[in-house]
């Protein structure tokens, strides 16, 4: 029971991470295509400014609870995904640096350099996280010594890449909507156009992904065994449709909420389908790591459950306060202040 609760919490924390940092990734990827002037670029940076760091801590927490609650999964997952994981971390480093360093020097080439870093630092994690999760759904080729039988290209198989493209599309829509919330005038219009056109692409990718999932993974087994669970992907579909409707109505906060729900439930759809597996082996299914054979001792799970049940609501409360505090549009006054990116 404790293991099951932890499995769901684990999925939930990853879901919250992608829901929050997802709009940062989307905006970073969108930046070179949508911003035509330094002012527009700065609107995008400052739209993420007060949030990206707090969002990224959800990744640290996701990593931390994997370590704490499922140490064997943590050990095997992180060591077998060595190269892509380090690439993600390096990308996150240059992304953070571009936020903090870009505004410190006025030169044009300095700024373009950091714009390129932001782009790569957003695109690479979005793609690689998608690739990684899609591959986990399929199963990872690791043997009984927990050695990964393959290389980076093994992971870049069609289904894996499709997962990557799905993540990018989800985040692009999410980020465009966030920009529509935080900007006005021409930039807001561009953001809205981007959100609604990428949404169509997202819809196509989602349908293809769900179809391929049927053939490439055993993910639907849990749903067929327990049809009530189909409510989860149903919410995803409804939230995705609602996103489009709200964009059309210029209700960007509602659209962003719907898009958040889409990402959160899409991640949970995968996680619930995976259960009880956390890190299945495609070489021999008896080697697969599950919530039950890779978990910590009951005492640790109980203590950590207490910590998480107390602390996470507190974290959500003050992060919500921070989002509320900086919910306004990025205006001239903000951009001309020294306390901005």
């Amino acid at each position: 029971m404790l293991e099951t609760i932890w499995f769901l919490l684990w999925g939930l924390i990853w879901g919250i991470y992608f829901m929050l940092d997802g709009f940062d990734f989307g905006l970073g990827i969108l930046l070179p295509f949508i911003a035509r002037s330094d002012k527009e670029r700065r609107v995008i940076y400052n739209a993420m400014g007060p949030f990206w760091d707090g969002n990224e801590v959800w990744l640290i927490t996701a990593g931390g609870v994997t370590f704490a609650a499922f140490p064997t999964t943590y050990a095997v997952m992180f060591s077998t995904l060595y190269t892509p994981l380090l690439m993600i971390l390096f990308a996150l480093i240059i992304r953070a640096a571009s936020f903090e360093f870009r505004s410190k020097i006025a030169g044009l080439s300095w700024k373009s350099f950091w714009d390129a870093c932001l782009f790569i630092g957003s695109l690479a994690p979005a793609l690689l996280f998608g690739v990684a999760f899609a591959n986990i759904f399929r199963g990872i080729p690791f043997d009984n010594n927990y050695v990964f039988q393959g290389n980076l290209l093994t992971l870049l198989n069609p289904y894996g890449l499709l997962g990557g493209v799905l993540f990018i599309a989800l985040f692009l829509v999410h980020g465009s909507i966030w920009l529509a919330i935080k900007s006005d005038g021409n930039l807001q219009l561009k953001a809205k156009t981007a959100a609604s056109s990428i949404w169509i692409f997202l819809l196509v990718v989602s349908v293809v992904f769900l179809g391929c999932t049927w053939f490439a993974t055993p993910l639907y087994k849990n749903y067929l065994g327990n049809p009530i669970l189909f409510i989860l992907p149903l919410i995803t579909v409804l939230a995705l449709l609602a996103t489009r409707l709200f964009i059309f109505q210029n209700s960007f906060w509602k659209a962003w909420t719907a898009s958040s729900l889409t990402i959160l439930t899409a991640v949970l759809f995968g996680i619930v389908g995976l259960f009880p597996n956390m890190y299945p082996s495609s070489i021999d299914s008896t080697l697969s790591l599950t919530a039950f054979n890779s978990s910590s001792s009951p005492l640790t799970l109980k203590i950590m459950l207490g910590v998480v049940l107390v602390m996470v609501p507190i974290v959500i409360a003050y992060q919500t306060w921070a989002y509320h505090l900086f919910s306004g549009k990025i205006d001239e006054a903000m951009l001309s202040s020294k306390e901005s990116y």
Binding site: V57, I60, T61, G64, V65, F67, A68, A69, F70, P71, T72, Y74, A75, S296, S297, T300, I303, M304, V307, V308, M311, V312, V315
Partner: peptide, 14 residues
């Protein structure tokens, strides 16, 4: 991980 991992996770959340 049972011990060390949980302390790191507490650090992140607290």
């Amino acid at each position: 991980g049972d011990i060390f991992g949980s302390i790191l996770a507490i650090e992140a959340t607290v």
